[in-house]
Design a protein around this nucleic acid. Structure first.
Lengths: 118, 118
DNA sequence: ATCACTATTTATAAAAA
DNA sequence: TTTTTTATAAATAGTGA
């Protein structure tokens, strides 16, 4: 906008791409903030710029809350559960190995102590 | 904007709040899309409107990818890990109980078979 | 990266359909 | 709820510090 229309394609020039990204990110943040206030809504925005830098905004102080809520409400929960299962499976395998290699099942092993630090 | 400045506070009138939300969400989507194209960035936006309705957008077809990347890269990973630990801890307790109550440690138990279905 | 300027393009509030 | 209209408010591209 301004001084000529913008073509909707990737900006090749690195410098101007970064300038545009910075300006538009600022503008976007304002829009998101306004929407969350006016509409009394919970919002989370996550952006990875081309350089891999993380930008984020959340109307909650905890962006995780919105994300978690998302994870629970979307069909993509299948992916979420699949990831979770991998973690759990790994933990179970570790625990199994520990238990199977212990002499006395009743004394507290280090693995157990560690897991209960939580 | 237009026909008078907007006060930055929650719109009490339900109808006009919804109209404003709908319009601004549309505008926001466009902005986010433009930013992702111009800046060649990966973007995810999640909004829960007051009614609890989920609105989302992602420049990836899989919004989960951006979210997962977020989870791994942010400091809030502490929260993420804490949640994960709870799941793992529960799994370990279950597995421990199963293992501790088995007669023969070398035959395949049902719990193990189940966990390896993944 | 950010800030200022500013001509233009966009977004949108209000009203009505 | 969604769309159209349209007067205005906002956002921003290009430029230079």
């Amino acid at each position: 906008m301004a001084r000529g229309k913008v073509q909707m394609r990737r900006i090749e020039n690195t410098t101007s791409q970064q300038v545009t990204f910075s300006k538009r990110w600022t503008g976007l943040l304002k829009k998101v903030y306004e929407l969350s206030v006016l509409g009394n809504a919970k919002v989370a925005v996550i952006i990875f710029s081309q350089k891999g830098r993380l930008h984020e905004f959340s109307s909650n102080s905890k962006i995780r809350k919105t994300i978690d809520r998302y994870c629970r409400s979307t069909n993509d929960a299948a992916t979420y559960q699949a990831n979770m299962e991998q973690y759990i499976l790994e933990a179970i395998r570790t625990m199994s190995w520990i238990l199977l290699n212990r002499r006395n099942p009743t004394d507290g092993g280090s693995a157990r102590a560690k897991s209960e630090q939580h």
